[in-house]
Design a binder for these strands. Structure first.
Length: 733
DNA sequence: ACTACTTCACTTTTT
DNA sequence: GTGAAGTAGT
């Protein structure tokens, strides 16, 4: 029996474990079944495979390891690739893409779905570089191109790639005729959806209270509607199970969901869920549409499959239904951390159930971490109840340093300890080699403070996103109504900016405009016109903007109008207006309104980045702006890596988060989250925990169970006997 | 429609 | 313990 750290601690197991058992059993069976279809790299088979294509330009065999090569060259059938942390997943997809093309697959037949556009572009870009770097292929490409008078590298641009949302958005617009929908729709982000729900609630005059039980807030409602759709749970069941205190409102909420849906359809509005679900609906009911896509996309690759939700899985299944369509889904079941957004970890575990003939390939060689770190993350992996068997191994023989766990009296000490280690290791590293990963963004505050005091430059990832800032949403609302005058949510947002115009007037005015064939005249002519002196200038601005030549010109006009309004409404208008520069730059990059709006909605700039600290003076060869310590939430760190990683707040209640303690699946996801955090480290991993954590939610003082449950030999626990230089704190168990 | 008071929810957030 | 959002009263 292995000794674990803090073996004396007792942690309550989630109460619903018993109920979970049948589900666990089913999942385990599905896993076992697919494990039986595991294919391993057989040198002979691979050699044959490559030999049969003597014309291959890229040297796949020397660039990839055996299983990567297997995955890259298995191009028919349905395949699940379990790609462990740091196992070269992107590289494999890149080489597979180029292998497909070298095998004569037309780029137009390839569909590559990822979770960010960045990932899709990276794979495409790297595949292009790969093919271009082999002279004869590049030449061949060019010859084709001269012939077809196509721009350079057009071939790879023809690959359909992007996120599920951008793919579906494209389909809805491109096939609007076939599907019988209006292609000029606008996209509601989460906040817009909330506003819409609230608006409908008021318009329909539904009760706000039943027997003294308050009606849920718009945020809660949006959450319920979205979860209900993404996880395919009836609103009634969802509320009864997860929101029991609002059960009296179920009938009204169900009706509201229907109203919300009709409202969106009537006004050409799609929320994030609609974009996918509507495509799924059309695929199910429109045979022409389905066959069209099935014939077009013959080679489909899906990245991060563990984080797909049910509608996304259905979308893939509908297109991939014919056995002739090739499907490769890639993911790591240990890294599914987005259940709160509807991601369904069962998709990856049940892959073999949907495709009984499916093959399984595992990438287990890790190119990131030292053996000492790998040993630890393998031990963490062993604690995860459900998943494919996997054992990561390192190609590196230098053992490295075991992860270090250190408990400190409070969060400030924790931050100090982290800063100390950075200063200590700095001689051998750049600042950009370090990352501090936190369970919640709030937990980074102490670290930020400490870094500021010590002049450690840092960059914070996460927080309020650019696109969600109020003034950005305001400006975009103007753009939206120019594109889709039926965007009642945008109208409402604009009109209520003005003093004297409230919810009622805004709704009436919007109705008048929509009823008047979307002319802006009612701003001047209706009895509401004199509610605010701003309406006439608004009319003028909109009329001008609708004639404007470029997106940039439109933004300029809007800003001229909006700046005075912002000055009245916000004290920090100067600070806020800084963001408009970003907006203007984006406008320059787009030549049409729909592309501009689409990009902002589906690929928003990640400019919510706060920075501080003095850049290093005279440091050579390093971009000052980039040489900073990263402070990030664990979620935002997924897919990234650093030589030195710190994970803080390892108190049971913070990590795992107290809201997850009573639910088996939620606790399991927290465990995976910790796994993601630790597997970001290349050579050094520091784990820290304060002595206690207390808030409105309770008082927590046990070390995280994720630390406690791992065999003691995998980690170095610093104790009193190994004091740190300035350590005057007692060491806490 | 605006304001002052009260209540409530409160991780994570690739879309 | 804190902010946003909802309610009641002007």
């Amino acid at each position: 029996m292995t000794t674990t750290i803090f073996a004396t601690h007792h942690y309550n197991y989630p109460q619903n474990f018993i109920e979970m058992k049948p589900k666990i059993t089913r999942l385990k069976q599905a896993i076992k079944k697919l494990e039986a279809n595991l294919i391993n790299a057989d040198a002979e088979v691979l050699a044959q495979r490559l030999a049969s294509h003597l014309g291959l330009q890229v040297d796949y065999a020397s660039e990839l390891n055996a299983n990567q090569l297997l995955a890259a060259t298995t191009i028919e059938g349905k395949v699940l690739v379990i790609a462990g942390a740091g196992s070269g997943k992107t590289k494999t997809l890149t080489y597979r893409t180029s292998y497909l093309i070298e095998n004569g697959v037309s780029p137009k037949e390839i569909l590559l779905l990822t979770f960010t556009r960045k990932a899709a572009n990276e794979i495409k870009g790297r595949a292009r570089a790969l093919l271009a770097s082999t002279p004869s292929f590049a030449q061949r490409l060019n010859e084709d191109l001269v012939e077809d008078k196509l721009p350079k590298n057009k071939a790879l641009n023809d690959i359909t790639s992007g996120t599920f949302h951008s793919f579906c958005n494209m389909l809805l617009r491109q096939y609007s005729g076939l599907l019988g929908i209006n292609p000029r729709f606008t996209i509601l982000d989460t906040g817009d959806s909330e506003d819409a729900i609230d608006l409908i609630h008021k318009e329909k005059k539904y009760p706000t209270k039943i027997t003294n039980q308050a009606f849920p807030r718009k945020k809660t409602l949006q959450n319920i509607f979205s979860t209900s759709r993404n996880r395919r749970i009836h609103i009634r069941d969802l509320i009864e199970n997860s929101y029991p205190d609002i059960a009296v409102h179920i009938p009204v909420i169900e009706q509201l969901a229907i109203d919300f849906h009709e409202y969106k359809r009537a006004n050409h509005l799609y929320d994030f869920d609609d974009i996918i679900s509507q495509v799924v609906r059309h695929l199910k009911h429109n045979d022409t549409f389905r066959q069209l896509l099935q014939n077009q996309y013959r080679y489909i690759m899906v990245d991060e499959y563990q984080d797909t939700n049910i509608p996304q899985k259905e979308l893939i299944d509908l297109i991939c239904a014919p056995t002739s369509v090739s499907l490769m889904v890639v993911g790591d079941d240990n890294q599914s951390i987005y259940a709160f957004r509807g991601a369904n970890y069962e998709n990856i575990l049940l892959f073999g159930e949907g495709y009984p003939e499916a093959k399984l390939i595992k990438l287990e060689q890790n190119y990131r971490s030292t053996p000492a770190v790998l040993d630890y993350i393998n031990a963490l992996s062993a604690q995860i109840t459900l998943g494919y068997q996997k054992q990561l191994y390192s190609g590196v023989s230098i053992e490295g340093v075991k992860p270090i766990f250190r408990r400190l009296s409070d969060e400030s000490r924790e931050a100090k300890y982290i800063a100390d280690r950075i200063i200590e290791l700095k001689p051998d590293h750049d600042y950009q080699d370090f990352a501090v990963l936190c369970r919640t963004s709030f937990q980074s505050n102490y670290v930020q403070l400490e870094f500021m005091e010590r002049n450690i430059p840092f960059i914070v990832v996460g927080g309020i996103r650019f696109i969600e800032r109020r003034h950005i949403k305001d400006v975009l609302a103007f753009v939206k109504i120019l594109y889709n005058p039926n965007d009642t949510i945008a109208w409402h947002r604009i009109l209520t900016l003005f003093k004297g115009v409230g919810s009622v007037t805004a709704t009436r005015l919007t109705q008048a405009i929509n009823a008047d064939d979307n002319s802006f005249e009612p701003l001047l002519t209706t009895k509401f016109a004199k509610k605010s002196t701003q309406l006439e200038p608004l009319y003028k601005m909109l009329s001008q903007a609708s004639q404007a030549e470029s997106v940039e010109a439109i933004i300029e006009l809007i800003l001229d109008f909006y700046m005075p309004v912002l000055k009245i409404n916000e004290d920090n208008w100067r600070e806020r207006s800084e963001d408009f520069r970003v907006l203007k730059n984006l406008a320059l990059e787009h030549d049409s309104l729909d592309k501009f709006l689409e990009n902002l909605a589906l690929d928003p700039p990640n400019d919510s980045v706060a920075t501080a600290g003095e850049p290093e003076k005279g440091e050579e060869g390093i971009d000052k702006n980039r040489n900073k310590v990263t402070i990030s939430t664990i979620h935002s760190a997924k897919g990234l890596e650093w030589p030195v990683v710190f994970v803080n707040s390892l108190v049971d209640g913070m990590t795992p988060h107290y809201r997850s303690l009573s639910d088996f699946e939620e606790l399991e996801e927290e465990r995976k989250l910790f796994y993601v955090a630790c597997s970001r480290a290349k050579s050094r991993l520091f784990l820290t925990a304060p002595d206690y954590f207390s808030s409105y939610s309770g008082y927590f003082d046990k070390v995280s169970r994720f630390i406690a449950e791992v065999p003691a030999d995998k980690i170095t626990v610093l104790t009193v006997k190994q004091p740190l230089e300035e350590s005057d704190d007692p060491v806490w168990w």
